[in-house]
């Protein structure tokens, strides 16, 4: 047996993982009866169907003949820089405030591009923070910590 369609194969596995996970955790809640369904009934049912579907998709992706495929190189730089910039923003928002954490978000996420240029990223950050201060803080009055925590309340 060979994997004919690796995307379907992996998608099937993903569905199996989510399906079994949901079905098993749904067993922790009361299932109830068909007439009086408990909180576990519907999720258990869904998890079960999803698992079966996942198995079906996985099996369909297999074939007896081997297929030669060129491997597409996985590029993780864009993903890492974009996702980590968001996580960092969440981590730093309270301690550093919006201005500094926005700066970090823009610079780190900019690194994900092939055309990364530090000078442009810095200028972009500066411009964007100014925009945010005017639109979100001044006009829309979003409640967001602006300055680092050690400076807050002192200025």
């Amino acid at each position: 047996m060979y994997i004919k369609n690796s995307k379907d194969f992996k998608a099937g596995l993903l569905f199996i993982i989510f399906g079994t996970g949901a079905a098993f955790s749904a067993r922790l809640y009361s299932i109830g009866t068909t007439a009086k369904m408990g909180p576990g009934y519907f999720p258990f049912l869904l998890g079960l169907i999803l698992t079966i579907l996942g198995i079906l998709i996985t099996l369909k992706s297999l074939s007896r003949e081997k297929e030669i495929k060129k491997k597409i190189p996985l590029r993780i730089r864009p993903m890492i820089s974009v996702l980590s910039s968001i996580v960092l923003f969440g981590l730093l928002l309270y301690p550093l405030g919006m201005v500094l954490s926005s700066f970090i978000l823009v610079v780190i996420s900019s690194m994900g591009s092939d055309e990364f240029n530090m000078k442009i990223a810095l200028l972009n950050a500066l411009f964007l923070i100014l925009g945010i201060l005017i639109i979100f803080v001044y006009f829309l009055q979003f409640q967001i910590p602006i300055l680092p925590s050690f400076l807050r309340g002192r200025i």
Partner: peptide, 22 residues
């Protein structure tokens, strides 16, 4: 390269503002 960091920043601040929650 100028556009997407702006979108990301906009998204992050927008999401935070819904529940004031990181």
């Amino acid at each position: 390269r100028i556009l997407y960091p702006a979108i990301l920043l906009f998204c992050c601040i927008g999401i935070y503002s819904i529940n004031n929650n990181v």
